[in-house]
Design a protein around this nucleic acid. Structure first.
Lengths: 297, 297
DNA sequence: TTCCTGTTCTTTTTGGATAAAAGACATCTT
DNA sequence: AAGATGTCTTTTATCCAAAAAGAACAGGAA
């Protein structure tokens, strides 16, 4: 049956909210809480019932009153607060880049289901998803074959990334001066400088910044198909580098400087300059990823 | 439970094979038949058992002998010989471009399941697939929203197609003269000429030829992500024009001539010329599709 | 009126059951 | 030895049921 992650998250989030309220205060209405927590009223009602049972809150006619501040014991187990598909994606990706999966091998869905402790339906859905990422392939007999994070894969992925990024650069430099993207670009430049200023302590935050930067650039040339590619890339990067922390600091430092040059290129409105800076950055990223894969092989 | 489409197809295919054999002849071995039909030996054995029960064939020690030629009644019902996912894809796409689905509306999976006479799991899989085509979107609350074959969609799709095709053209003109692609190109040119020669009767075959032509061109710059786009496009074209046969002949005639010019461009090895011909063809296709959508709206 | 609550009905998610198909292995024939 | 067959095991496709979450509606309070 369905997991109740949504309920459990709503429960804990509610406690967080209540912790900031004075005891005796009247609580917001059900619809208000639903909007606040981003869930349906049905879920809110379930949470409220539980809170009442815990003695945190009492229904007084049509009003709810806070009886006491929530304590640590009121919280529901924080483990498994991740939606099943996400959890599975994580586990699967870890398996995929791990030593148990070699490119070209047939994937045994049933076995994976047992290994990950989920049903085979869930595995099936997951495999379907990843096949769109190009990491898997369906054979004629209904089986799945792992393609894996191979050199070829990375080459093709980065070819696409270049197409996507150059297309965006072309459009970016041609934007009118009052376009909001310029402001966003200035903002992200400031964030880069701030990060570099305190690099020793904050270099791990770069991956998040990287994501935002490329989203700003590519946001000016939206295309749902390329958008998918960006998603694939995020997933690949995320999982691959999670297992490959080597040189992370150095890698991020180089990339941050390249981003600044890239931003300069865009702000110069000179297409040639912008393209050159973009190309340089992508080339570095490509060879870095390739090197780290070859290392792993 | 699993459908037995595979079994039923194997059964009918076997009858086709046997119809071409003289009575009394010894039949191929189980593994040989399995390879011939492209199924497992398990399925072959099931078919053979059925054939024996029908009196078409008799097991004589280790050999099987054909007793009589198969007749029409021996064949299994030809209806429903399509794998479920394909059947569903067809129905769904027809629904999607039909009047019951308006862009932006929420899709009711359960209702679709009832309408199409399949389980909601099957619908789920189908929706998942089409969401990767960009025709659907998943909302935060787990529902599906139809995006539909809108102007935006077509624009973005063709933008991608241009990227893909230009990239291929660039590589194509740079191929060495002894590359097999040149021969394939000459072959497809001949097929175009043959089709035009007998256009009145054969113009419906163009769509197949079109597919092959673009596959040859794009085959020189393989990329699994772009390959996906090509797949999307095939599906869109296939279904859209299936419902929109208007001007088909004229449309195909223009496209065939443009293909010839495109082939000339490639064979001239002149990048500028090739690109121009390619661009012209893609522009025509784009505006034709857009016009036919606007007509439908 | 406008918004809240109680109630009921739908829809989605997920695991499990079961038939179909594939694959593995030992044995047997030629 | 090579290949075919009989038997058994594993894996996949598909539907179904039950829990969870969402949505709709009516009646009532502010």
């Amino acid at each position: 049956m369905k997991t109740n992650v949504i309920y459990r998250r709503a429960h804990n989030q509610s406690l967080d909210l209540l912790a900031r309220q004075p005891v005796g205060e009247a609580l917001p209405s059900e619809p208000a809480l639903a909007a606040l927590l981003g869930v349906s009223r049905t879920t809110v009602r379930a949470v409220l019932t539980a809170l009442e049972a815990l003695g945190i809150m009492a229904t007084d006619g049509r009003q709810r009153r806070l009886l006491r501040l929530p304590c640590r014991d009121d919280y529901l187990d924080a483990a498994g607060l991740e939606p099943l598909p996400e959890m599975l994606e994580r586990k699967f990706m870890a398996w995929m880049v791990g030593p148990d999966c070699r490119p070209g091998a047939v994937i045994n869905g049933l076995d994976l289901a047992r290994q990950f402790g989920v049903s085979s339906s869930a595995i099936r859905e997951c495999l379907n998803k990843f096949s769109h990422f190009g990491l898997l392939e369906r054979q004629s007999n209904g089986r799945w074959r792992a393609l894996g994070l191979t050199i070829d894969f990375v080459e093709e992925l980065f070819d696409m990334r270049e197409v996507m990024e150059f297309r965006a650069v072309d459009r970016f430099v041609a934007l009118p001066s009052d376009h909001p993207a310029w402001e966003a670009l200035a903002g992200i430049r400031a964030q880069h400088l701030a990060l570099l200023d305190n690099f020793e302590r904050r270099y791990r935050d770069f991956s998040e910044l990287d994501h935002r930067f490329h989203r700003i650039v590519n946001g000016v040339a939206p295309n749902r198909f390329l958008g998918n590619i960006h998603g694939v890339m995020s997933v690949i990067f995320h999982y691959h580098y999670q297992w490959n922390k080597k040189d992370e600091k150095e890698r991020n430092h180089v990339a941050a400087l390249e981003h600044l040059a890239y931003i300069d290129g865009l702000e110069s409105r000179d297409l040639g300059k912008a393209r050159a800076a973009s190309r340089l950055h992508l080339e570095t990223a490509r060879s870095t990823l390739l090197a780290s894969i070859e290392l792993a092989v």
